[in-house]
């Protein structure tokens, strides 16, 4: 097997063709308790990170938004309120279980009108060129097998001048925080996973996949290489999470 056909699955090296299936296994397993676990894992701070993402999205009434790896619909639900009935929000996720949980949650909240759902792979987005004013992917990019391919696919579906926002775990900027965060991720997190979702392995994978994800500068470079411009990132909570933003050139 050549080196190009290998990729990371957490700290393990796996065949490229196998990664999507392994990631799918993780999310099928955690889907039903995903919201609860996110709250527990981040102490509820993930809501603040998402709130800031919405502030920087610049989404307005009537806009068209694609939320990739939208999972349980936190961002899509808020975008639906902002764009109103004349806008369009597509919640996309590669994972059927996550998409079902997200759709049920949004329907239960009475959010119907501008929302539609698509089971889609971020690398091969099934949408026409220049379709969206804004594309977001929150805590999803690190699970994608070929991130460059996914970034180019997102660029294609964005309208010229449209924004891509990537919210993802990143590298803490402070050494002490980094050590505390490591200790938490590898000792506490899998135990929490075992306790709440009955699945320590999946949460072990989440912690490992975060460490294998490109750091702030690398991801910014990847976005520039994919063809985005005015790329910038904003560290949040000491760099535990970073929000990257790039514009599709006119």
């Amino acid at each position: 097997m050549s080196e190009q056909s290998k990729t990371h699955f957490g700290y393990q090296e796996v065949d490229v063709d196998d990664k999507a299936g392994l990631v799918a296994g993780v999310f099928h397993s955690v889907a039903s308790r995903y919201d609860l676990m996110n709250d527990l894992m981040s102490g509820g701070i993930h809501r603040l990170w998402k709130r800031f993402t919405i502030e920087l999205s610049g989404v307005r009434k009537g806009h068209s938004v694609l939320d990739i790896a939208g999972g349980t619909g936190d961002l899509a639900g808020k975008f639906a309120e902002i764009v109103g009935a004349e806008g369009r929000v597509v919640l996309a996720d590669i994972n059927e279980s996550m998409l079902n949980v997200g759709r049920d949650k949004l329907l239960d909240q009475g959010k119907v009108d501008p929302l539609s759902y698509a089971q889609a792979d971020a690398q091969y987005l099934p949408f026409a060129d220049n379709s969206f004013d804004c594309v977001t992917i929150a805590f999803g990019l690190r699970n994608v097998t070929d991130k460059d391919l996914a970034l180019r696919s997102m660029l294609r579906v964005l309208k010229p001048g449209g924004r891509l926002l990537v919210l993802e775990f990143s590298k803490p900027t402070n050494d002490l925080l980094s050590k505390a965060y490591d200790a938490y991720s590898f000792n506490v997190l899998p135990k929490l996973g075992q306790l709440i979702a009955g699945d320590a392995d999946s949460y072990q994978y989440l912690a490992e996949s975060i460490r294998m994800h490109p750091d702030q500068e690398t991801l910014k470079e990847m976005m520039l290489e994919a063809g985005f411009e005015q790329c910038e990132f904003f560290n949040m909570t000491g760099g535990i999470v970073a929000l990257h933003r790039g514009l599709k050139p006119w």
């Binding site: 701070i45 603040l48 709130r51 800031f52 502030e55 910038e232 904003f234």
Partner: peptide, 16 residues
Amino acid sequence: DLTKFDPTLNVALLGA
């Protein structure tokens, strides 16, 4: 100045 700004606390205060 967004480059020097860690929004977590501000967003938390404003959200509350």
